Simulated scan of single mutants.
Amino acid sequence: MLHNIPPILSPDLLHCLRAMGHGDEIVIGDANFPASSLGPKVMRLDGIPATATLEAVLRLMPLDRFMPDRALTMQVVDDAAAVPEIVAEFQQILDATADHPAPIVSLERFAFYDRARTAFAIVQTGETRLYGNIILKKGVIGSA
């Protein structure tokens, strides 16, 4: 056991977060997200909500302060202006937990999938709410 590490983070996920470099991206996907078919390494956190996963990851991983699109979500199909409840929760978690909070940027569904294909890894959660997907861009420790 280790101190101050959220217990929902698996050893594989901790290794992944440590192995990521500046500018690498990680996807936190909901239970419906097509994680296994996109290509990057997939780690599963079945039964864990995406919101809890986001908060745990942000406690350890710095966000890239130089990029405005350091947190991205998927737009609602046929209503790009809609903000699902879970996305509003993601924003609250980013504001409260991230070292460099920023407004979430949204991407059209297939653009989100394309971006996810280039991610370092995907974490598939047990989140059942629709649009419970977010991409985070890793920053550096000590960036002012």
Rank of each mutant, 00 (worst) to 15 (best):
M1N: 03
M1S: 14
H3N: 14
N4G: 07
P6H: 15
P6M: 11
S10H: 06
S10V: 11
P11L: 04
C16N: 03
L17G: 00
L17K: 05
A19F: 02
A19T: 03
G21N: 12
G23Q: 08
D24W: 07
D24S: 10
I26F: 13
G29W: 02
F33E: 06
A35Q: 12
S36M: 10
S36N: 09
L38E: 09
G39I: 07
P40N: 15
K41I: 10
V42C: 15
R44Y: 13
R44N: 14
D46H: 13
G47W: 08
T53W: 00
E55M: 01
P62V: 07
R70Y: 01
L72H: 00
L72Q: 09
M74L: 03
M74T: 01
Q75Y: 01
Q75P: 01
D78F: 10
A80P: 13
A82T: 05
E85V: 12
A88W: 01
Q92T: 12
I93S: 05
A96T: 00
T97A: 06
T97V: 14
T97K: 07
H100I: 09
A102E: 12
A102M: 12
V105A: 04
V105N: 01
S106M: 12
E108L: 13
E108I: 04
R109T: 04
A111L: 06
A116K: 08
A116Y: 04
A119M: 04
F120R: 07
I122Q: 08
I122V: 12
T125F: 10
G126R: 12
E127N: 14
R129G: 11
L130F: 13
V140P: 05
S143H: 11
